[in-house]
Amino acid sequence: MASAVAAPGHQDRYAGLKRHEVILLFVLIAAVAVLAFRSEQFLTTGNLLNQGRLLVEVGLMALPMTFIIITGGIDLSVGSIMGLCAILLGVFWQKLGLPLGAAIALALVVGALAGFVNGWFITRVGVPPLIMTLATLALYRGLAEGISQARSVRGYPDWFFGLGQGELWGVPTQLWLLLFFFVISAIVLTYTTFGRSLYAIGNNEVAARFSGIPVDGIKIAIYTMSGLMAGLAAWVFVSRVSTTRSDMGTGLELDVITAVVLGGTSIFGGTGTILGTALGVVLIQLLKNGLALSGVKGDGTIVVIGVILILSILVSDLLRRQRGAEH
């Protein structure tokens, strides 16, 4: 049913997006080549795997963020949800004395709940997503600070660090987790009715509603998913850095959104792919790493990322319009 709605212009959009990903891939290859030339440590398995470890948190949150932005929404609260879940994980375990496994599970539940609250207000009460998540950006961070009283939680048992610091078959453990969710998300978005409904909502929400798509339910689901993934990211993060603080994940929402947008998902909704997002996440991480290795300082690096963000979108947009004009 959803495909019927999405059909007009579907072919165009698909081709256009493919273009963006090709461009992004080209940029990525060019960047890797240049960086590898500038620093011999860059293109080594050890370094690349290590970068894989570092990008997992942003990557996990970028997947549902792609879904949300495709529907024309946004979630600014992911960094705060991550902070809240990290704190609760520690508090449940240390202050309430729960087994660590149960504490992790509960923290994930809270993450999902935090996302659900966003989704519920956005759909049932009609608060615009930007405003809702702007409010919860402050609210959830505030809860994290209030609950923890700004104290950090430390002293986790060794097994807990397996996820964030360990390896499985020679690859950082958390990277498997990200790969798993990457594949799932890509399949869901490309091959399921649910995925096609997301595009339909983003293209024309009213039309989607009239064609019988459960718009509200779907939106609540993706915001809940976003919260859950932020919780998962919190777990990975706490396990990686072995401590919990209420200021964790501050400002991460912009990194996540940058990666998604760089990946070609239109902020106006209706277009975007998981592959693009993955390329965006990887490109940013490799740029940060490669520039640092070749002697560019942190402040220079963020300038380069800013320029590449604007240019890549600009170029792919121009190419798409040119192609559109030829038709």
Partner: peptide
């Protein structure tokens, strides 16, 4: 903390 760790990590590699 997160970014600081990343910076140190990069310099170890370098």
């Amino acid at each position: 903390i997160d970014e600081q760790i990343t910076f140190i990590d990069n310099y170890i590699t370098r």
